[in-house]
Design a protein around this nucleic acid. Structure first.
Length: 425
RNA sequence: GGGUCGGUGCCCGAGUGGCCAAAGGGAACGGGCUGUAAACCCGUCGGUUCUGCCUACGGUGGUUCGAAUCCACCCCGGCCCA
């Protein structure tokens, strides 16, 4: 495959939302490997699945022989991107920012190949060149080349200028910092293409304009569409909030489950956009899925592939195993299987004193329900199960409930499962 | 700095002295139907030792038998003027 084929692949997956002069971009890609960058701001302690598409985009370019540069936005993260928001962002304190930055760097490293080679990935932090820059230097070298008129015309700014809350000068400047990043990377690393989510379009073109003005060079930009869900919910939002890439914040099992539960209407698009599976393979899966949707094969293939990318093959296998355990009866599980489940599902560790205690109380203490009242309501509605049997009012945890002397399966509603484990001694 | 409007439960929002744990909507949660899908239907949705008690309507203090509702001061936000 030639380096320019990446465009056809992206097109086929529905991953091209917007691109600068496509003919020029194709011609440039045909000449050989290009250096491509995408930026990620450390606004949280982890990236989430919403970042996955732009992140995988770098990986896709790399697999076609191009050189990816992942930018962790230590500097831009301090300012806040005004795009896609209705109100001013709270500034993060430096300690939080450092912690977020370190976590995000680790996640970026997982998804790209940093091994020696012609397409070796690089990780940069825009603080390195933004911090040393003085105000006057910034205003002369960057600000002078951009008119406020064009900045005001950008969608991300326009919406905020017209809003009641307005926009601070700080966030207004965000675009210039990102434009300067592109200029810097173009000059230092020979970056010729910036990619990102569709909300980044204005920032990307600002960079392209800046580079043309100061260096007279033509660079390129490409954005991917926002991932949407058929039911109108925001992609990447689950029962417990966002679906994070960090295993501490979203367990690999919960991560896997998010994708197993994907709507039929979304599954093909997700396979195309969130996995690296070949197009023909996806087509085959979809044909089989259409014939027997109740088997949920497409969802399982999707969950397995995405979890594998983010958490590694071993964790993905484990999560898949726990997910299949969904249909198993608690009483049939072996000690080894219980231990496997405990590694994937949330665990309720109870002491000997809990045996004989009211079950609702035990669960309230461990945060499975947020209050005893909520627990009682749940029981009254028949929504709490212990070892696959609906719990009745006043039920306490008996020694007999602990299978193999240690384990019990607690289920809340249809899907939320917990492994209850008795601590020895 | 002046004026003015506002700050109610996870979010939006009604409520202007007792009938208010506070309408309505959304989100969320449980049940039913299903395929660990969608749609739809029903129920729940501050805490609790539960016909009671506690906590709660930006904060503090006050008026009153009684305040989310009235008064004073303070904090925060929008808009207009400077």
């Amino acid at each position: 495959m030639s380096p320019a084929d990446i465009l056809d692949d992206l097109q086929a997956r529905g991953l091209v939302h917007d691109a600068t002069d496509r003919a020029a971009l194709r011609a440039r890609l045909a000449e050989g490997p290009i250096t491509v960058y995408a930026g990620f701001d450390p606004t949280a302690e982890s990236l989430h699945v919403g970042n996955l598409v732009p992140l995988l985009l770098l990986r896709r370019f790399q697999s076609f022989g191009h050189r990816p540069v992942a930018l962790a936005g230590g500097a831009t993260g301090m300012i806040g991107d005004p795009g896609g928001r209705s109100s001013e962002r709270n500034l993060l304190d430096p300690a939080t920012l450092d912690r977020n930055l370190a976590a995000i760097k680790g996640q970026l490293e997982r998804l790209l190949d940093f091994g020696e080679g012609p397409a070796q990935a690089r990780l940069v932090d825009n603080r390195d060149w933004t911090e040393p820059m003085g105000v006057l230097e910034f205003l002369r070298d960057v600000g002078k080349h951009v008119t406020v008129n064009t900045m005001l015309a950008k969608e991300s700014v326009k919406a905020r200028v017209e809003s009641e809350a307005g926009i601070s000068f700080t966030e207004f400047s965000y675009m210039l910092l990102q434009a300067n990043d592109y200029r810097h990377l173009h000059q230092r690393l020979g970056v010729e293409l910036q990619v990102g989510g569709s909300d980044q379009w204005g920032n990307i073109t600002a960079g392209i304009d800046l580079i043309r003005r100061v260096a007279g060079a033509h660079t390129h930009g490409l954005t991917v569409p926002l991932v949407t869900r058929a039911d109108g919910q925001k992609f990447g939002k689950s029962v417990d909030g966002a679906v994070w890439l960090s295993p501490e914040m979203t367990s690999p099992y919960a991560f896997y489950q998010y994708f197993v539960n994907v709507d039929d209407r979304d599954v093909e698009r997700f396979l195309l956009q969130l996995t690296l599976l070949p197009l023909d393979e996806i087509a085959e899966v979809i044909v089989r899925h259409a014939a027997a949707p109740e088997r949920r094969e497409a969802q399982q293939v999707l969950a397995r592939a995405v979890t594998g990318l983010v958490h590694g093959e071993a964790e993905a296998d484990r999560a898949a195993g726990a997910s299949r355990g969904f249909t198993r009866r608690a009483s049939d599980l072996t000690v080894e299987e219980w231990e496997g489940l405990a590694a994937s599902l949330p665990v309720i560790d109870v002491g000997p004193a809990s045996v004989g205690q009211d079950l609702v109380e035990v669960l309230a203490e461990h945060g499975v329900v947020s209050s005893k009242g909520e627990g009682r309501r749940l029981v009254a509605q028949g929504g709490l199960y212990l070892n696959d049997v609906a719990v009745t009012e006043g039920r306490s945890l008996a020694a007999d409930d602990l299978l193999q002397g240690t384990w019990a399966m607690v289920r809340r509603g249809k899907k939320q499962r917990y492994v209850l484990r008795r601590r020895p001694s």
